[in-house]
Design a protein around this nucleic acid. Structure first.
Length: 566
RNA sequence: UGGCGAGUGGCCUAAUUGGCAAGGCACCUGACUCUGGAUCAGGGGAUUGAAGGUUCGAGUCCUUCCUCGCCAGCCA
């Protein structure tokens, strides 16, 4: 308890074990990781897994995690994304301190190293076109062929490379390539492109450059410059590791980072691909990157998911090298878990049905005391007005109750939460036979929700006073994709889009205090689920998003019943 | 087809490196309950991708095979 060891006691995932061993066996004195997003889109929950891994390791092992933007492709990158990414990482609860970097910070150094490589005869300027380079590359089974420019004198490459930088050539005219092995079974070693000409405004460096390093030439060297010890990336970069190492081996870099790969996160009922997410936005399937149905950080935030739920989820799924698809249910579990603990409870009626308590004095208003969070007594209580006319949930009444339906029905007594027991005495219908109102009586002796004679209703209902409740719009969300595996076995994943992923309810009535819920806070509407105010919400026009429902065994029973009869 | 990687209950992840296959999610049952929530207790579910081999003993080591993923951008 008194001694502090930088090495956590419990065994972790395979990467943490490597980190611990490197420390324990003296290969490393301290740990430096990095989260290296490309600012060409918004962060999603898959990135959260990587963020939690990199920042988590730094935190646990007393090290540091840099935030580094991998901004080597000015055609796709924008400042807007840089800003959003920073905000998202912060929101998750991580801090990079002073260590905010950009690969573009290193462009000059990278250029010099490229020159070193040319001088050493390990890189050359190639005049072949992109198509020709592809043809020369060979295939999985056939080796590639050397470019005719491969053995051009270093001086010539040097001159050409300088002129590429000077802007003498158009996009695609020439590239700088590493001279490795055109017959390598690993295709990324067949003289990979190191630099290409891109005449394009860069969000950070403007028009200072018209040659840009490729990912392969920038990433490992950036790691080395920053003293990254463990460069953690996803599985698809595994084949690049030999190239990563080759560059580190052949350049006078100041440190020796190592790359480790883990399986990226996949989730059922959604898609975590920047390309597809971009299409969802651009084609109007959602209203934007922060649409509450999106798996983006900003979408989840707007949906009301607490950051802690997401980081807990990352811990829950672990880190391994097996391609996997995690059931969304696990995310929902993590989120419910923190919300159940922290969210304060309120009353809201989504599909209102009026009840009139005939023996309750007209015009009288009583304030009943309601606990804000039964899970957390320190959250205190609040006063909620109770009167003769109330709204209850339509689903909480059945004229002809089926088996196992415990809620209100003609002649049945239920408890109105924290208020009184009421009994339904009469059902009022309109001409069409629709139930429009219930007449009830209440038992004044049950004030607060307990009967002196100890009788206990089988159901407790939420309610709001008709005269005091405020109207609201509530947006219900469901999975963006109907199929757990959108686009599986060749199907067009856009065919799997769930047309009911968003349902807007108007005419809801909510407790007046709900007008004061601050942005970013998620509350529980008792018995219904977790909800948060949407940015569209205004003082005189409240809008709530349903973050998720409570676990609902009644709904499950109903669903099962439907299946049984079907 | 060449290279690389991965296969453990429906899903995710462990297994002290050769010693009784464990935990979480999901599911089911019961208890409790002023949320049909939460909580608590219990339960079902695994030939560890397959077949051989080594061994007293294999998820772990060897051989062969099968399946899946990634790689042929001047994307990352």
């Amino acid at each position: 308890m008194s001694t502090e060891t930088p090495i956590p006691a419990e065994r972790g995932d395979f990467i943490r074990e490597i980190v611990a061993a490197d420390l324990r066996e003296g290969r490393r004195q301290s740990i430096v990781t990095r989260f290296p997003p490309e600012p060409n889109g918004y962060l999603h929950i898959g990135h959260a897994k990587s963020i939690c891994l990199n920042f988590g390791i730094a935190r646990e092992f007393g090290g540091r995690c840099n935030l580094r933007f991998d901004d080597t492709n000015p055609m796709k990158e924008e400042q807007e994304y840089i800003d959003a990414i920073e905000a998202d990482v912060r929101w998750l609860g991580f801090d990079w301190g002073e260590h905010l970097y950009y690969a573009s910070d290193y462009f000059e150094q990278l250029y010099e190293w490229a020159v070193d490589l040319i001088k050493a005869g390990k890189a050359y300027v190639d005049d072949l076109s992109a198509d020709e380079i592809r043809e020369h590359r060979g295939t999985f089974t056939e080796p590639g062929r050397n470019s005719p420019w491969r053995d051009r004198p270093a001086d010539e490459s040097l001159d050409l490379f300088a002129r590429m930088r000077a802007g003498e050539f158009p996009n695609g005219a020439r590239v700088l390539r590493a001279k490795i092995d055109m017959a390598a079974p690993n295709i990324s070693l067949r003289d990979p492109v190191l630099y290409r000409i891109v005449h394009s405004e860069h969000p950070r460096t403007g028009d200072a450059w018209c040659v840009y390093p490729t990912y392969d030439f920038a990433h490992g060297q950036s790691d080395a410059i920053e003293g990254i010890t463990h460069s953690i990336c996803t599985l698809e970069f595994e084949a690049h590791r030999p190239l990563y190492d080759w560059l580190i081996d052949n350049l006078p870099v100041p440190s020796r980072p190592h790359q480790y790969e883990f399986a990226r996160l996949n989730l059922t009922h959604t898609v975590l691909s920047k390309r597809v997410l971009l299409r969802l936005v651009n084609e109007g399937h959602v209203r934007g990157w922060d649409d509450p149905r999106m798996p983006t950080m900003s979408g989840l935030r707007r949906r009301g998911y607490p950051a802690e739920g997401i980081t807990d989820f990352a811990t829950l799924v672990g880190v391994a090298k097996t391609d996997s698809v995690v059931e969304v249910g696990m995310l929902e579990h993590a989120v419910r878990n923190v919300l159940n603990r922290a969210a304060s409870r309120r009353f809201a009626v989504l599909a209102p049905l009026k009840i009139v308590i005939e023996n309750f004095p007209e015009g009288q208003v009583e304030e009943v005391e309601v606990p804000n969070n039964p899970e957390d007594p320190s959250a205190g209580t609040r006063k909620v007005p109770f009167s003769r006319e109330l709204w209850i949930e339509r689903d909480d009444f059945m004229e002809e109750p089926v088996r196992k339906f415990f809620r209100l029905a003609p002649g049945r007594e239920v408890r109105l939460r924290s208020a009184y027991f009421v009994t339904c005495t009469e059902v009022v219908k309109d001409d069409a036979g629709e139930v429009v109102e219930l007449r009830c009586t209440y038992d004044p002796a049950t004030r607060g929700g307990d009967a002196p004679d100890g009788r206990r209703p089988k159901a407790t209902l939420h309610w709001v006073s008709a005269a005091h409740a405020v109207p609201a719009e509530v947006r219900l969300y469901d999975y963006l994709f109907k199929s757990p595996y959108p686009g599986a076995d060749g199907a067009d994943l856009f065919d799997d889009l769930n047309p009911e992923s968003e349902t807007t309810l108007s005419g809801c009535f909510v407790e007046a205090s709900l007008a004061d819920v601050p942005a970013g806070e998620t509350v529980q509407f008792e018995r219904l689920g977790y909800f948060c105010p949407d940015p569209d919400s205004a003082a005189d026009a409240l809008v709530f998003n349903r973050t998720m429902t409570l676990k609902d065994t009644w709904a499950k029973l109903q669903k099962q019943g439907r299946q049984d009869t079907a």
